[in-house]
Design a protein around this nucleic acid. Structure first.
Lengths: 202, 202
DNA sequence: TTGCGTTAGTGGTCAGACCATTATGAAAAA
DNA sequence: TTTTTCATAATGGTCTGACCACTAACGCAA
């Protein structure tokens, strides 16, 4: 490995793998070269390759199948969940910041939606009748309605971190009125209900 | 390693380390046993120990110092967020989405600031006289004023990805009035100027 | 054609070696 | 005595090579 900078080899490997994925526009389910191939191509020992792979595996970015290979995987944070929860709990600041950001992003989403003229509400309306609808599910739909995939990803990332330390945020008592207000385009009312979700649990 | 379940060794090691920290109530800066000690105590090879340690190092939970040892470190999600962003932001995001998100985050920041009663504006006021002040610099200050480091980090990441394709967004003609309006707490006016920065270049 | 066993490729794990860096303490110098 | 110097031990960083376990693919036999 070109170890020019004093960066560790496994860090460099990380970058190389990322670049590899980027260049080839790999997507969910696509295969990554075998550890031995990477070892040869990147001129690093298999140990170092593995250190990098194990790290991104723990992050939830890849999936490893014994005897088959290593595969890209859409980010599912639940690998690191338990792990982080033990550590993060102590840091009150961090927890608050996470919650705040999640709240602000959701509020942002609602505000943006309120300025759209036409909204395709069928998916939302379905959830009113579905009493199992959860906070996360709902906002996935709402962010989808906005159409900005990047914002959805960012929000989803924040949520996943937040879920490690915090619990189910809203109950049916606030969710149903919230949804109904939103569908009727009473956005101020919806924003109020949304705020209540965070007030009640904090 | 007891490898009873088909869980990988490095996963078990992860749990053991977590338990170790928990039992002893270790805190920021405390030392973790050396790789060789852990290897012996947990009955696992040093490679497996290292795979586990590298993983949590990447998460930002520990810090490693060559020749000294491995130390616990207060967890801040910034590192993980940054790492994940390189994977998440890279994926097929259109330039428009990046710009939109940047704009929305800045707007969010301004809105939040407008609701604060007291603002420490000295740092902002300095920039009015400093005619070299740049869009990025200004908003770093503004996000700092908000106080949420995570939001700043997210915005900054978006900007850094955006700058690769887009350049200097605002010129002095819009920046100066924007700053003055903000300082005088004319937030609606400031928001307008902010919008103009994006209108003119799009 | 169908079924089965061999085989090659892959990840999982280990042991041991060597290097680079740091801390420590003993010996030498002041 | 105090300070400096330097050898030594301990630590992380990296590599090599080996072996096991699992999977898929291929070819041969029924």
């Amino acid at each position: 490995m070109s170890n020019q900078s004093k960066m560790k080899v496994y860090q460099e490997v990380l970058n190389e793998i990322r670049r590899y994925i980027e260049d080839r526009q790999l997507q969910d389910g696509d295969r990554i070269p075998s550890e031995r191939e990477l070892s040869e191509q990147l001129n690093a020992s298999r140990s170092s390759i593995r250190e990098a792979l194990r790290a991104i595996e723990l992050l939830g970015l890849i999936e490893t199948r014994h005897g088959e290979g290593t595969f890209l995987r859409t980010y599912k944070p639940y690998q690191s969940v338990e792990l982080l929860s033990t550590f993060v709990l102590t840091e009150a600041n961090t927890k608050d910041e996470l919650t705040d950001v999640q709240f602000m992003l959701e509020q942002l989403c609602l505000r943006e939606l309120s300025q759209k003229e036409s909204l395709e509400l069928t998916s939302i309306e379905q959830m009113v009748s579905d009493h199992e609808a959860v906070h996360t599910t709902i906002f996935i739909q709402l962010f989808n309605l906005l159409g900005n995939q990047l914002l959805l990803k960012i929000w989803h990332l924040v949520v996943s971190f937040n879920q490690t330390i915090d619990q189910q945020r809203s109950n049916q008592l606030t969710i149903q009125p919230f949804l109904k207000a939103f569908i009727n385009r009473q956005f101020d009312k919806a924003l109020n209900y949304h705020m209540m979700m965070y007030d009640s649990t904090e």
